[in-house]
Every structure is written in C-alpha cells, then in structure tokens.
Simulated scan of single mutants.
Amino acid sequence: MTVVIVSTGGTIASTEDDGEDGAAPELTAENLIASVPELGDVASLRTRDFSNVPSAYFEIEQMAELASEIEAYDADEEVDGVVVTQGTDVLEESAYFVDCWYDGETPVVFTGAMRNPSLPSPDGPANLLASVRTAADESAEERGALVCFNDRIHAAADVTKTNSMNVDTFRSPEVGPLGAIDEDRVVWFRERASRPPALDPDPDRITNDVHAVTVTADMPIAQIEAAADAEALCFAATGAGHIPPSIIEPLESVAGNGVPLIATTRCPEGRLARHTYGFRGSEETLRKLDCYFASENVQKTRIETIVALAADSLDVVFERP
C-alpha cells in the first residue's frame, strides 16, 4: 500500500523563524512525515513538494496543475492513495476544484492544520495520520475528493471552514461527515449523495476571471457592474434566492453582455427556491434573468463555474429551472 503525500504549504508546514513576527510555511513533506512515526505502520510513503505557500496565495492555475498531477497518480498502478496537505483558508476550494476535475478511483484526501507545529498541541500530525489511514482504505475509492480533519471525513462538495481558529473548523452543514477515524479504523457512515458530472476541462481555458459576490442589504450596484466583462458572475442571493431590486438592472446589463449568471444562496444550509415567491427580486426574477441555479456555497460555486467553463459544460453542471 503506497500513499503519496503532496505538500503545498499552509499552517501544517509553518514554523516560526528568528526575526519574524509569526509562523510561515517552510516544512517539506519529508519534515511532515518525520513528525508522525506511526505513518510507516499504515502505508509506504512517497512525497511531492508541490509548493510551500500560505493558503491564501494558492491560485486557480495551481489547482489545475494539482488536479492534473493527481490524475497522473491515479494512472500509476503503484499508487494506492494521495494525501494533499494545504493551508485551511482556501482548502475547501482546492479540494472541490479537484473533485470537479478528477473522476479517478484512487482516493484523494485533503488535510492541514489550524495550529502550527510551534504551538501547544498542534493538530497537523493527527490530521496527517488520519488522512493517510483514509487514503489507504479501499472503501475510500471512487468517493471523490475528501477532506479529513479532527478525525472526521467529509466530502469536498459538502465541507466548509466554519471557524477562523478552532481545530474543529471543518464541518458539513446539513448533511454531516461521510465517516470518521475510530482509533486505527476508518468508519464510514454513509455514501456521498453524488459526485460532480465527469467533465473534460481544457487546461488552457482555465481562468480566474469569474467574479463572486455576496448579496447584502442595499448593496452598491458597482459590485455587479464590475463583472460586465467577466467570464461569469456567481452571486449568493439572500434566503431562498432573493435580491434587492436595485441590482436587477445591473444584472440584466451584465447578462446582456453575454456573461453567464450563476446564483446560489448565502445561507449555510438549504438551496434556492423555484416557485415559492413572485415579487420583483425573488427567485422568479432569477429565472427571468436566465440564471443558472447552483447548490454549493458561493466560493465553491465559483470553482465549479471555472471548471465548467473550461469544459464548455455550464449546461451540464448547472440547471436553469
């Protein structure tokens, strides 16, 4: 059983440097492995130092490169699982990017840490051990990209970071985790509801020019107008799909420029309504705007849109009620 540890940086790889005010990514994948001797009892390990940057530095092109490398590992008969270590700030976006891009069988597990190794009780070593156990488990095959934190296993499509500092930050609102680590055992609670449709994205068409906006009370229309020449505009509407009337005309203008509109809800649970309300600015207005309806949070909706655009598959990925 061979598991590849792909290190990208983040808190799990951070240390405090003399002369610096705080921790910064410096540790390699080999350093991370050395801190958890028990890993050798679970699987044979290979390492790949993909990058060493803070999570917020991680770019869309790097996500695409990472997804392509994971596809190569899936084609390697000697690799049984992949664990990606990353900073937590955009981890849910990276994991979901891979989930949308990758349709292989080899388990892929994302993890990281909320406490760097210089702090009391760092959580990185335990998260890494739990993730390798998950990646080495045959039942993890074909479940798509997973996120393992605090001994819980989540589907990339479901999970989100819920707390800025707490080690129990990654949760799957509404649906809960797929499984957990009990001692040295991987325990599965349920199957994931579905995986994103298999796509064939063109790496040369990957772009970060997809805007994402959260709708707020009496928001300035400039936030919408800024997307006039974008590749797409994703927005998180209030409640079940409601927007202030002041942004309807700007949305019409953006759509008139040929910019696809993808709507979701800003609520952590639930989805957009279809036919409950009919006032101007309700979900009925979103339908008249010919919006695509998404079911993920706005940050993951943006990721899904980026991959779908690269595969010329917006109509496959999203529905227009």
Score class of each variant (00 low, 15 high):
Met1Lys: 10
Thr2Val: 12
Val4Pro: 11
Val4Trp: 08
Val6His: 00
Ile12Phe: 04
Asp17Asn: 08
Asp18Ser: 08
Asp18Cys: 02
Asp18Ile: 15
Ala23Pro: 12
Ala23Gln: 05
Thr28Ile: 04
Asn31Gln: 01
Ala34Asp: 13
Ala34Tyr: 04
Ser35Trp: 10
Val36Trp: 08
Asp41His: 12
Ser44Gln: 13
Ser44Ile: 13
Thr47Arg: 02
Arg48Trp: 09
Ser51Met: 07
Ile60Gly: 00
Ile60Lys: 00
Ile60Thr: 09
Gln62Tyr: 09
Glu69Asn: 08
Ala72Pro: 01
Asp74Ile: 15
Gln86Phe: 01
Asp89Gln: 05
Ser94Cys: 10
Ala95Ile: 10
Glu105Asp: 11
Pro107Gln: 12
Pro107Lys: 13
Ala113Thr: 03
Asn116Cys: 07
Pro117His: 04
Pro117Ala: 09
Ser118Trp: 07
Pro120Met: 05
Pro122Cys: 01
Asn127Gln: 07
Val132Asp: 02
Ala135Thr: 10
Asp137Cys: 15
Gly144Gln: 11
Leu146Phe: 09
Leu146Arg: 07
Phe149Glu: 05
Asp151Leu: 13
Arg152Ser: 13
His154Pro: 14
Ala157Asn: 00
Lys161Ser: 05
Ser164Ile: 05
Asn166Thr: 13
Glu174Leu: 15
Pro177Val: 05
Pro177His: 07
Ile181Leu: 07
Asp182Pro: 04
Val186Ser: 08
Phe189Thr: 03
Ser194Met: 01
Pro197Arg: 04
Leu199Gly: 08
Asp200Phe: 14
Pro201Gly: 06
Pro203Gly: 10
Val210Phe: 10
Val213Ile: 15
Ile221Tyr: 02
Ala222Trp: 03
Glu225Lys: 03
Asp229Gly: 09
Asp229Trp: 08
Asp229Arg: 11
Ala230Met: 06
Ala232Met: 11
Leu233Asn: 10
Leu233His: 13
Cys234Asp: 07
Ala240Asp: 01
Gly241Trp: 07
Pro244Gly: 03
Pro245Met: 13
Ile248Ser: 08
Glu249Pro: 10
Glu249Thr: 15
Glu249Arg: 14
Glu249Ile: 15
Ser253Phe: 06
Pro260Asn: 12
Thr264Phe: 06
Thr265Val: 03
Arg266Lys: 06
Arg266Met: 03
Gly270Pro: 06
Arg271Gln: 09
Ala273Leu: 12
Arg274Asp: 09
His275Pro: 02
His275Phe: 13
Thr276Arg: 02
Ser282Pro: 04
Arg287Ala: 14
Lys288His: 12
Leu289Asp: 07
Tyr292Phe: 15
Phe293Val: 04
Ala294Glu: 03
Ser295Arg: 03
Glu296His: 08
Arg302Asn: 10
Ile303Gly: 06
Thr305Arg: 02
Val307Glu: 01
Val307Cys: 03
Ala308Asp: 10
Asp312Thr: 14
Asp312Tyr: 13
Leu314Pro: 15
Val317Lys: 02
Pro321Tyr: 09
